[in-house]
Computed example of a mutant assay.
Amino acid sequence: MNAIFGWSVLALVFVDELLAVAAFGVWGWHHDPRWLLVWLLPVAGMAVWFCFASPKAPYGGGLVRPLAKVVVFGLACVALWDAGHEDWAIALLVFSMVVNGLAQLPSIRVLVDEQ
């Protein structure tokens, strides 16, 4: 695969991470105390991602990293569903599975390992 495709996939993975954080904010907006949850839940999602799922996660490992990704993206989809955005929840789930699946291709993983 060429580098342009690989970096495009990695850019879409980053967009997927931002969408997951936004989904937590949407859920927080639909529940009380709104003023607290609308920022606390996205920050908690980012903290989990930073600690366990990011490429340089201090606590990420062979099993921990994929498990953290499944938990974060799964909870983001559940949050959208619970907030009444069922179509967006399904779209996020499919998008997450596709781009994260593509990111596991050896030719794309090598781009992350080089950094």
Score class of each variant (00 low, 15 high):
residue 96 S to R: 03
residue 9 V to I: 09
residue 81 W to V: 02
residue 74 G to M: 07
residue 16 D to Y: 02
residue 78 V to T: 00
residue 69 K to F: 14
residue 76 A to N: 09
residue 19 L to F: 14
residue 8 S to A: 10
residue 90 I to P: 05
residue 56 K to Y: 13
residue 35 W to L: 08
residue 7 W to Q: 04
residue 55 P to A: 06
residue 8 S to I: 00
residue 72 V to H: 01
residue 106 P to D: 15
residue 3 A to L: 07
residue 52 F to N: 00
residue 13 V to K: 05
residue 16 D to E: 07
residue 79 A to P: 08
residue 80 L to T: 07
residue 5 F to C: 01
residue 6 G to L: 03
residue 72 V to D: 03
residue 7 W to F: 12
residue 5 F to T: 03
residue 20 A to K: 05
residue 92 L to D: 06
residue 60 G to P: 02
residue 15 V to K: 04
residue 91 A to R: 14
residue 21 V to Q: 04
residue 94 V to N: 13
residue 86 E to T: 13
residue 75 L to S: 06
residue 63 L to I: 08
residue 16 D to P: 00
residue 29 W to G: 02
residue 29 W to Y: 08
residue 99 V to P: 11
residue 86 E to P: 05
residue 90 I to Y: 14
residue 3 A to K: 12
residue 32 D to V: 06
residue 97 M to A: 15
residue 5 F to N: 02
residue 12 L to C: 13
residue 94 V to Q: 14
residue 91 A to F: 14
residue 115 Q to G: 12
residue 93 L to P: 01
residue 63 L to S: 10
residue 65 R to D: 14
residue 75 L to G: 00
residue 35 W to G: 04
residue 76 A to V: 10
residue 10 L to V: 01
residue 4 I to V: 07
residue 55 P to K: 01
residue 83 A to T: 15
residue 54 S to R: 11
residue 104 Q to L: 05
residue 7 W to S: 02
residue 1 M to R: 07
residue 87 D to Y: 15
residue 113 D to M: 10
residue 54 S to D: 13
residue 109 R to T: 12
residue 24 F to H: 08
residue 13 V to R: 03
residue 101 G to T: 01
residue 44 A to M: 10
residue 81 W to S: 08
residue 115 Q to E: 15
residue 81 W to T: 01
residue 111 L to F: 13
residue 47 A to I: 08
residue 71 V to F: 12
residue 18 L to S: 09
residue 25 G to F: 05
residue 46 M to S: 14
residue 89 A to I: 05
residue 74 G to V: 05
residue 23 A to I: 10
residue 58 P to M: 11
residue 69 K to N: 08
residue 73 F to L: 12
residue 48 V to N: 05
residue 53 A to T: 04
residue 14 F to Q: 04
residue 112 V to I: 14
